[in-house]
Design a protein around this nucleic acid. Structure first.
Lengths: 154, 154
DNA sequence: TATTGTTATACTCTATAACTATA
DNA sequence: TATAGTTATAGAGTATAACAATA
């Protein structure tokens, strides 16, 4: 007997999709997508990050990230810069406006987390967080974000 | 300071997406999508379910579900039937082939769950499951799967 | 020859709206 | 007028492949 309602991958996927959809709708008021918000969030602690690292941090494929950063650059939220050491790499840097927007969204994001964790004790919340980090690491080993042998197989 | 790597909605969404993507690729060998598998899984315990209930059980919007069931019907995995009591409702019933395929996939699905939970004790796994069920319920209250005032707003 | 990022494309998922037929 | 399901469509998100520039 198989119970979908107790199956961890299903619960992860559906809970994740639900909260993402709902938060996306709220972010629309700020004129950015959920993915753009993740980019901003990743940049809040850093002065600048390379596209590749940004992709790993946000779990966004670089090819997708390119277009997201295109949009954010057009909005004046980030700036691209070529690295002096390695001219292939591109550094993404938040603008003052980008930083300000990111910081303004943080409390809203935290409110969403507290909706997801409504009725949880502090202990339970911490427990869930640490269990999720471990699941995430397990899934990370499985592949994902493209392990790049990008050449055609044949 | 905001740490994306410890933010529950992010972890949920990314872990969920990762495992879904990976499992989808494996399901392709059986000729069905992840969503179709969920439909099969939901039907394994039932003789038949209405479209609406099926949508709620699998968290798939009915409009999406229609097309998924179209495909499954063409593959001979399920059969649609009109309800005698209420001629508006449509009952979806798994075929023998559909049931067999569903049952064949169950162990693979469980293997994926155990990949996600690698290194977890039985206690920790149970804990995560129950915490996720609660998160899922919290998100459910938030809206989702369309609360239908489907009429145009203006 | 390998790596970084970009572009193009195709496929899935999701959300919305308008429609049919029943109730 | 409300409900069950269908159809059409548009928007994200994701993955793949081919490419340019650089190492």
């Amino acid at each position: 007997m198989f119970r979908l309602a107790e199956y961890v991958p299903y619960l992860l996927n559906r809970a994740g999709a639900r909260i993402a959809g709902s938060f996306s709708a709220e972010l629309a008021a700020h004129g950015i997508s959920l993915q753009a918000w993740r980019v901003l969030a990743a940049l809040l602690d850093a002065t600048a990050l390379r596209m590749g690292d940004l992709g790993r941090l946000t779990s966004i494929d670089v090819s997708t990230l390119t277009r997201i950063v295109d949009g954010m650059e057009a909005q004046g939220l980030v700036k691209r810069r070529r690295g002096p050491d390695d001219a292939r790499s591109v550094w993404v840097e938040p603008s003052a406006r980008g930083r300000a927007l990111g910081r303004r969204i943080v409390p809203e994001a935290l409110r969403y987390e507290s909706i997801a964790l409504e009725g949880f004790s502090a202990d339970e919340a911490a427990q869930l967080r640490s269990l999720l980090v471990r699941v995430f690491a397990n899934m990370d080993r499985l592949g994902g974000v493209r392990a790049r042998p990008r050449r055609k197989a044949g």
